[in-house]
Design a protein around this nucleic acid. Structure first.
Lengths: 384, 384
DNA sequence: CTGAATCGGGAAAGCGCATTCCCACTACGT
DNA sequence: ACGTAGTGGGAATGCGCTTTCCCGATTCAG
């Protein structure tokens, strides 16, 4: 038994396919009550399920939203995905998932695949990067997106615009104030802490990482502190661990030095995301160091699953789910028209806002810009 | 500019659409080299992207894999999703995501939506449940799946078969030995621990939870221990927290009692999943209790993000990603034919195996069944 | 009571592609 | 030399649905 078709339903109901289509799917023309009933009855007696492919082909729109992440198992992306999923459901659409590991070339492939499926919109959640080896990939990605938009697709990217993409109609960016928030975090940290700072950053060129590093340094400067040293590593837990190992050596050296010189100051480590911070913590622990006795540590993102972690991470709360929702909604037709040009430039209202608030607003980020919240957690409770 | 079509490409290349189709998509017939080149050149000069909808319609298959989870932000599902995604990529398919919160009615909707999109296969990752309020939903879900399978769809479900689903052609279940593993965990715990046990379980009727509870009790019995009390709550972090609060009271009472009577024995808490265990830990901590001083705690799943948690959770390592991969591969055409009937019943080989190993094998779970690994972590390091 | 306006339904033309036929042509065989 | 198999391309059909267009039947105004 093959799936039954509209035609079969129509035949069973004794009407034409056109009529059947009109009653079963939201058409402007509503057939008469009696006929409608007959059709509906025929439909579910046959267990009719409309063929979305055919529907899509006929009205060229698929009810699909493409989501691109680096890794769906990363809690950061998982949280965003939840938001996207929610918004998709509001729009009665389904989400198509692609994971790319962050490589622009893969992302380009994903966009092409989404385009092939005639996805109504695409949300790109992974951080952009400007590393030289990605240059070509970025260009191709930009071109692909451009074409997608020109064909009526809508795309929202979280964080930074795609490198090299001119902003066509239908291109939105949800600005995340990484820099400002990192600066705020540094400020708060500095006010309660008189030691030195070290930053565990991601690979150079990764925008999210770079912004947070830059912001943090600015915050330190504003507080009259020396700039922090930077250890670069990969943007995940493993990278954090590796860097942690390195820093453990440093800390021990400083402690040894302090034993015979003036009191060495404790180190405050800022990892550019929570997962890296956790990795670093584990590394320190494995080296016999303790937090906050030997160092203190801060992260970024406020990953839900890690909130119960102890010693508690000082971190910046990013409304990840909300970000996903906003990005998705931005791509919904009939929403926040992409007012082009930064003419609507409203003044930078209260709270920490997007790096380019006006631009964000102009790009249809939604009713309110992304804000964040710095959370200083006291690591009073000692743990390895 | 609308997306260009095959016909346009064909015209530009000066060939018929049929020929263009043959060269651009893997057809059995390979046109001549020169023509192929011309077509290919025309194609990318136009930036041609095949319309997957139309292709799907024409050959009735979509290259889509549907994945159903309770919540994509739950690290358990996120890990499975990663595996599914990986396997999907191997098969050059895309994954379509649906989150249902675990309600069978929603799941039925999702299956219908997947069927409408003509997904080639469906992976259902959430735990099944037999709660009375879900009875109707379960039946509908089973019916929907049945129809889907009869129309040539393939479905793999993780953990337990869908309630009420007779096993049609194309229906696979990846058995997870929750019960055995829980028993093994109980055994190990009991051998190093002479206090009482308490179980924090999910809602009654949730198979995964019930199996783990049952297995744990069996393990205790096998070790000559009294059965544990059970606190039922929701299957997530919040539930764990709530239960933890309750248990904190119990623990304090026992401690008070112990102060004036014979030495009260410490409690060992088994939460049926890691996330609940974390919640419980947080609750105990908030009540001023410490682990392992006042109680010890064990979980299940070995969620990656939680491995760095301290006090470390004793837990059972479930190869979540592998489970996702296996389930997905099981649905790939040309794989592990669904040998019907438990005739191939091989003896229960070494290692902990599926609840019904033969059935699992017969259901095409793949070359090797899911095993797990009990990890007893010492909570030597004290933390709140 | 007739004309036009309206309504409710059907016929048919695609949407973009795969694929089955079919045909012209070449390369063989005996 | 003729016939046959084989080859490479095109014409045409259909996948399941939406939508425009059309037409007969009502209804209402004049």
């Amino acid at each position: 038994m093959a799936a039954s078709t509209l035609t079969e339903v129509a035949r069973l109901a004794g009407v034409s396919p056109a009529t059947a289509s009109r009653v079963l799917n939201g058409s402007a023309r509503k057939p008469g009550q009696d006929i409608a009933d007959r059709v509906r009855q025929a439909a579910d007696s046959l267990g009719y399920i409309p063929n979305a492919q055919a529907q899509g082909l006929a009205k060229s729109s698929s009810g699909l939203i493409g989501l691109i992440v680096h890794d769906i198992a990363d809690p950061y992306f998982a949280a965003i995905a939840r938001g996207v999923q929610e918004a998709a459901r509001e729009q009665r659409k389904m989400v198509l998932l692609a994971t790319t590991g962050g490589a622009p070339a893969e992302e380009k492939e994903a966009v092409a695949a989404f385009a092939a499926r005639r996805a109504d919109s695409i949300v790109i959640a992974g951080s952009r990067s400007a590393q030289p080896e990605n240059q070509e990939g970025n260009a191709e990605l930009a071109a692909e997106l451009d074409r997608y938009c020109r064909n009526g697709g809508r795309v929202a990217v979280v964080g930074h615009p795609v490198v090299g993409a001119e902003a066509p109609e239908g291109y939105y960016v949800v600005a995340v104030p990484n820099q400002e928030l990192a600066a705020a975090l540094a400020g708060k940290l500095a006010s309660g802490w008189n030691g030195d700072f070290v930053i565990i950053g991601g690979p150079k060129g990764l925008f999210t990482s770079d912004d947070r590093v830059r912001g943090f340094q600015e915050g330190l400067a504003a507080a009259g502190r020396e700039p922090a040293d930077i250890v670069r590593t990969t943007f995940n837990r493993a990278g954090g661990y590796e860097a942690g190992l390195k820093l453990a050596g440093l800390i021990k050296a400083r402690q040894a030095e302090a034993a015979e010189g003036p009191a060495g100051r404790k180190l405050c480590i800022f990892a550019v995301n929570d997962v890296m911070a956790i990795g670093a913590t584990a590394a320190l622990r494995s080296e016999g160091l303790r937090i906050p006795r030997d160092a203190i540590i801060a992260g970024f993102d406020d990953i839900e699953t890690l909130r119960d972690f102890r010693p508690a991470l000082s971190t910046v709360r990013l409304p990840l789910e909300e970000i996903g929702r906003l990005a998705t909604r931005a791509t919904a037709p009939g929403t926040a028209s992409a007012g082009e040009g930064p003419d609507g430039a409203e003044s930078n209202a209260s709270g920490i806002r997007g790096a380019d608030a006006e631009e964000a607003a102009a790009d249809g980020v939604g009713p309110h810009p992304i804000t964040g919240e710095v959370t200083l957690r006291r690591s009073t409770e000692t743990a390895a």
